[in-house]
């Protein structure tokens, strides 16, 4: 694995994530979060998942940024600075412990790109082998999403519909 551009990419990802949390101005934080999504999309593309990269770029960097900006602009635009308190002592103690625990747990994960990892020996070979003959669809991701796992996608669509309805119910003005 060459580290010529992956390392700067991951560093930029970390940098933008920290900056989005630490910056005081909320509008800047939203824009930095958009650039974070863009770098994350590049990471997905690097990992060989162009579908996920596409969604991340369009939803994370595009639509979510627009939603955040509209929210900030339609709430009080002058009060966009956060007042910060020092984090409690328990959090300062427990969060590094949690991080250490998670780092310890990563030692059990399969190696990066391991063909024998459980995720790539269960049902993926079946989809990869048969999706073209079964569905005439060359993009396996689409075949899995829309055909093999169509019920999941139906429920996901219902979730999106529910989100739209919930926003409308919560934010609508009582116009008489």
């Amino acid at each position: 694995m060459t580290l010529s551009y992956e390392l700067p990419l991951l560093l930029l990802l970390l940098l933008t994530a920290c900056a989005a949390v630490l910056v005081k101005d909320l509008i800047s934080a939203v824009l930095i979060l958009g650039s974070y999504s863009f770098f994350l999309a590049l990471v997905w593309a690097w990992l060989g998942a162009p579908d996920v990269a596409f969604v991340e770029a369009v939803v994370g960097a595009g639509l979510a940024t627009v939603f955040f900006l509209l929210t900030l602009l339609s709430t009080a635009p002058k009060d966009t600075h956060i007042r910060r308190h020092a984090p409690p002592k328990a959090a300062m103690l427990l969060l590094p412990l949690l991080a250490a625990l998670l780092l310890y747990a990563t030692s059990d994960l399969p190696r990066f790109g391991d063909p024998q990892s459980p995720a790539s020996v269960h049902v993926s070979p079946h989809y990869l082998k048969n999706s073209l003959a079964d569905t005439r669809t060359t993009n396996v991701v689409t075949a899995v999403l829309m055909d093999y796992r169509a019920l999941d996608t139906l429920i996901e669509t219902a979730v999106v519909f529910t989100a739209g309805i919930a926003c409308w119910l919560l934010l609508r003005r009582d116009v008489k």
């Binding site: 939603f67 509209l70 999106v160 739209g164």
Partner: peptide
């Protein structure tokens, strides 16, 4: 199955597009 995937994709696209526009209308 090809036709089914195509039709359901159109359904998903319409659903997501309407939800996005509706959230923006609610926010503004």
């Amino acid at each position: 199955r090809y036709v089914g995937i195509l039709l359901t994709q159109v359904g998903v696209a319409v659903d997501v597009a309407v939800a996005a526009v509706s959230i923006v209308f609610s926010l503004s």
